[in-house]
Design a protein around this nucleic acid. Structure first.
Length: 492
RNA sequence: GGCGGCAUAGCCAAGUAGAAAGGCGGCGGUCUGCAAAACCGCUAUUCGCCGGUGCAAAUCCGGCUGCCGCCUCCA
């Protein structure tokens, strides 16, 4: 079986056949006029999963993700906040990339910006004018939609249907209401670039054609983005690009379903959205990744706290399993590879892929096979989850504070024997330490021993005090027997 | 009005012709000072509704209902 992807262009699953040695991907990123929301992250995650799986299948991949930093909206924002549009753009780009890093989303190879590709944009518009696909009116340049026979193929719309439902305000400048702007004349106080049609700036759509063609060539493999871009953005991209080159544009079009909030699509312009920064304040990147991968990328996904909480529990199941089981150091081939591959090859079915991980875990409990643990870990990180080293904590002040408070309490309650033992024990443990990073672990180990001593003596107040203090700091104790307890970090 | 998508357990979600994956939650149990965790077991005779094709339908076809979206800026 080979990779199959759902291509919006054909409306069906297609076998993936790359055009050349390197798979070239273009992702429609943000128009950076406002802060990124959960929906943007989903689109980025789709590219991430696609890249990871292609890499796993031994394809070389080059991926581009654009930032549209010049458009009507950002100019409005500039006026509204009296802030340079470049600063507004940069701020949102920084937030977006920071968020992507938090989710361990693979970086694209390059993030081109519209404002840095004016030459390419202008020359593309010029080509379209020369070929008769575009015309200039008062410093604006429009694309002649009716001249491009395949218009509507991607979004499955016919020109007549569009006309019937047209809510497009009749513009005296356009020959046809369906025509769209490639270039817009600058109004006073607006950013502008010099062009053969005077001072102006690009329309939305043209920058993506110019940048993808410039960096990836006239024809490339995969174009991805949110489903809301199918019409008109991607439809227009196809029309512009193919009209200019006479060649096919992108071979496969992948569109992810949108993220909804109270059942309705998140959208920047209506303010109906959850900023990703806010979400990252409450949930870890791994949890958000789990939340998104649980649902197939083409389906609509509801954003709600209950879903994130559920994802956290689902994530914790795998994380805890990995923390508690020994893995095989070297794994020849992960178990259930054919099942996992089949799921991912089927249009990146992460939902099914996760199911396979849980099946492995169930088997792992029955047999305690280190090969299973290693397989789980392998798939988990293949899906982009960050798998940290087992229970190695950075030394941190909280643990030391707890230790000190416990000692103080021991003093108060005149537990002299224990205090003496601690000194010896602590010295032992610290001198045997090979790495300073073990300090927290060693102190916690000592605290667990003290606690178990109290448990044996049935001094539960003291034992519970230690447990509570650790728990308050996200350190969870698992009692395995009266003298064996382990700890782990609460999965967040 | 035109075009498109979706509907599977309490919640979420795979599955698109041949015995309903998985997760969360819930219930019962093992363990246990308690708690937590972990583990074990149970939790859809049935896939929005009606009709059709077929040996066989959640899966294909037709109709209906409901929700969502696009046609205007959007990941």
């Amino acid at each position: 079986m080979a990779l199959k992807l759902y291509n919006t262009l054909s409306g069906r699953l297609e076998k993936f056949v790359p055009l050349g040695d390197t798979v070239r991907i273009y992702t429609c990123g943000l128009t950076v006029q406002s802060e990124p929301h959960v929906g943007h992250i989903r689109a980025a995650l789709v590219r991430d999963i696609l890249m990871r799986w292609l890499n796993h299948l031994d394809y070389k991949v080059v991926a581009l993700e654009n930032f549209t930093d010049v458009d009507d909206k950002i100019i409005e924002k500039q006026k509204e906040f009296q802030k340079d549009w470049r600063l507004i753009a940069q701020e949102h780009i920084d937030t977006y990339l920071w968020s992507c890093d938090k989710l361990n989303i693979k970086r694209a190879n390059f993030y081109p910006r519209a404002s840095q590709h004016m030459e390419e944009i202008i020359s593309l518009v010029q080509r379209l004018v020369e070929k008769g696909y575009a015309y200039e009116k008062n410093g604006d340049v429009y694309f002649r939609v009716r001249k491009f026979p395949d218009y509507g193929k991607l979004s499955k719309k016919s020109i007549d249907d569009l006309m019937a439902g047209a809510r497009i305000a009749p513009t005296e400048l356009k020959e046809d209401p369906l025509d769209f702007a490639l270039w817009k004349a600058a109004k006073p106080d607006e950013p502008f670039w010099l062009s053969p049609w005077g001072k102006g700036r690009p329309g939305w759509h043209i920058e993506c054609s110019a940048m993808s063609m410039h960096h990836l060539g006239d024809t490339f493999d995969i174009h991805t983005g949110g489903e809301d871009l199918v019409f008109p953005h991607h439809e227009n991209e196809i029309a512009q690009s193919m009209a200019a080159t006479g060649k096919h544009f992108a071979k496969y079009w992948l569109h992810n379903g949108w993220v909804t909030l109270t059942g309705e699509k998140m959208s920047k312009s209506t303010g109906h959205y959850s900023p990703v920064v806010e979400v990252l304040g409450r949930y870890s990147g791994n949890v958000i990744r789990m939340y998104m991968l649980k649902t197939h990328y083409r389906k609509q996904l509801e954003y709600a706290e209950a879903r994130l909480d559920e994802a956290r529990a689902a994530y914790a199941t795998i994380k805890t399993y990995l923390d508690k089981h020994e893995e095989m150091p070297e794994l020849a081939e992960p178990l259930m590879l054919s099942e996992f591959t089949e799921a991912m090859d089927d249009d990146l079915n992460t939902s099914r892929a996760l199911g396979i991980i849980y099946e492995l875990i169930k088997k792992g409990h029955e047999t305690d096979n280190p090969e299973i643990t290693a397989s789980v870990k392998y798939y988990f990180s293949l899906l982009g989850f960050v798998v940290e080293e087992k229970a190695v904590l950075e030394p941190y002040a909280e643990v030391i504070t707890i230790m000190r408070d416990v000692e103080e309490k021991l003093h108060k309650e005149k537990e002299k024997d224990i205090l003496n033992d601690i000194k010896i024990d602590f010295y032992e443990r610290v001198t045997k330490m090979k790495d300073v990073r073990e300090l927290s672990n060693r102190i916690i180990g000592l605290l667990l021993d003290i606690r178990n001593r109290f448990r044996k003596e049935k001094k539960y107040d003291f034992a519970d005090y230690i447990r509570q203090r650790l728990m308050d700091n996200g350190i969870v104790i698992d009692d395995e027997s009266i003298d064996k307890s382990t700890f782990r970090l609460e999965a967040k």
